[in-house]
């Protein structure tokens, strides 16, 4: 069972997404901000990270950059949900691999298929690599 970590400062979003993804068979953990997410990742590395970008204290962008810095060999994909569509708001992600932007409003169906696609691709890469 794949484990997904959801990070969002909106409890409503966390609640609805958690229920939808659990229904899909994922094991879902949630974090209300970036700090909590970093703590959970350091304890148990998820298979997929889905994070909002605009959050207090540690934003989604800082969370991704810190993960990239502390875990250069990270394998799990990161989905970043954002309401900012301009490319200039996404330039920071250029050096981070396996990162996909999700434009709000998020569709669970699209997220589900994207996760499946990326997870399968990673599995293929791992099997070829081994």
């Amino acid at each position: 069972m794949k484990r997904i970590l959801l990070v969002d400062d909106e409890p409503m979003v966390l609640r609805v997404m958690r229920r939808a993804l659990e229904r899909e068979g994922y094991q879902v953990d949630v974090a209300i901000n970036g700090e909590e997410a970093l703590a959970k990742i350091s304890t148990s590395c998820p298979d997929v990270l889905v994070t909002d970008i605009e959050m207090p204290r540690i934003s989604g962008k800082e969370l991704c950059l810190q993960i990239q810095e502390t875990m250069p060999d990270r394998k799990f994909p990161i989905f970043v949900s954002t309401s900012l569509t301009a490319l200039e708001h996404r330039e920071w992600s250029g050096k981070i691999s396996n990162l996909v932007f999700l434009e709000k409003p998020i569709s669970i169906r699209k997220l589900r298929s994207a996760i499946a696609e990326l997870v399968e691709a990673n599995l293929l890469a791992e099997s070829y690599g081994s």
């Binding site: 909106e10 409503m12 979003v13 609805v16 997404m17 229920r19 939808a20 605009e54 949900s81 309401s83 900012l84 708001h89 709000k104 409003p105 998020i106 569709s107 669970i108 169906r109």
Partner: peptide
């Protein structure tokens, strides 16, 4: 950008609920 974010946040929740 703030307005877009604040508008899209409830829209996002609505979208998720509708889909659910």
């Amino acid at each position: 950008a703030h307005v877009a974010h604040e508008l899209k946040t409830p829209l996002n929740t609505l979208s998720l609920c509708t889909e659910a």
